[in-house]
Design a protein around this nucleic acid. Structure first.
Lengths: 152, 152
DNA sequence: GTTGATGCAAAATGTTTGCACATCC
DNA sequence: GGATGTGCAAACATTTTGCATCAAC
């Protein structure tokens, strides 16, 4: 028997978006999206991270389902997929307040900072239009050394 | 017994760089760097690609050695490592004529184009310096649809 | 001769998939 | 009730590693 808790704004759109495609709102999908909302933008989780955080919170969702759900939420635009570091992709909540941001990663300790840049957006758009491509999204990854790693 | 063929400019620096670190110039390392030079900048090879191309050319280098060599050549600055597509990293020759370039990838067919942008370089540098990071390198990945995939 | 590199096979990661069972609509 | 999703285990893909042997210096 399904338990129908009230949906928040995000999950309302999640439900509608899913149903438009003949897909279903399952507890697992809500739980994964909830997690990203709870921790907010600017946190970059791997599939394993999601799995562990949910376990810590007392909820067990299989890793296979987490992979399937992350892919789905990216397709639907709720999450962004990042390729920052070694060892797997990371995911973060897509936010309309924070639409086009980029990442600065310390190559030694992995510390990650975000920044926005209008110029980068324009440069990507220009380059795309120049040869007839239609821009979807552009992401700048800056590899760098953070202050404490510079000090060794 | 080692065969000492004349080294080209790249391999001269390779030899010197290796010896500075107490490392050795092996035939395998020369062969891998040679391959990248021969095909030139702008080609993006995976470790498997390198392995196959060498086999096609009649040279067998073990995949383990290719992985070790690619990592080494990236560390030494001869190659750049790209994270463009699904299914593994890609490598390309680093070139002083073509120092800071970025990639435009069609998300449907995988077609990849390169472009340069002074603004992107500046934006990355600014962002890094702003919070005390020391820039190493910045790469913009633009996900887009190419003209023929737009036409479906 | 010594130290560092290679090749092999096995292990470690990260991700996907087939299938039986469960569940959303 | 029927289509879709989940969990499990197995498969798969990519990358790393331990160890015996080999070769650069």
């Amino acid at each position: 028997m399904a338990v129908h808790l009230p949906l928040n704004r995000f999950e309302g759109t999640l439900e509608v978006g899913l149903h438009q495609d003949g897909r279903r709102l399952t507890p697992q999908r809500r739980i994964v999206l909830d997690l990203f909302q709870r921790i907010g933008t600017g946190t970059h989780l791997s599939a394993e991270d999601v799995h562990h955080q949910l376990l810590d919170a007392g909820t067990r969702v299989s890793l296979a389902t987490i992979y399937r759900t992350l892919r789905l939420l990216v397709e639907m635009g709720f999450l962004h997929e990042l390729e920052l570091s070694e060892g797997g992709h990371r995911f973060e909540l897509a936010s309309h307040d924070h639409p086009d941001h980029h990442h600065l990663v310390c190559v030694r300790c992995g510390r990650t900072e975000e920044f926005e840049s209008e110029e980068v957006l324009k440069a990507g758009l220009n380059a795309a239009e120049c040869i007839g491509f239609k821009l979807i999204e552009s992401t700048l990854n800056v590899r760098a050394l953070c202050p404490s790693c510079q000090a060794n």
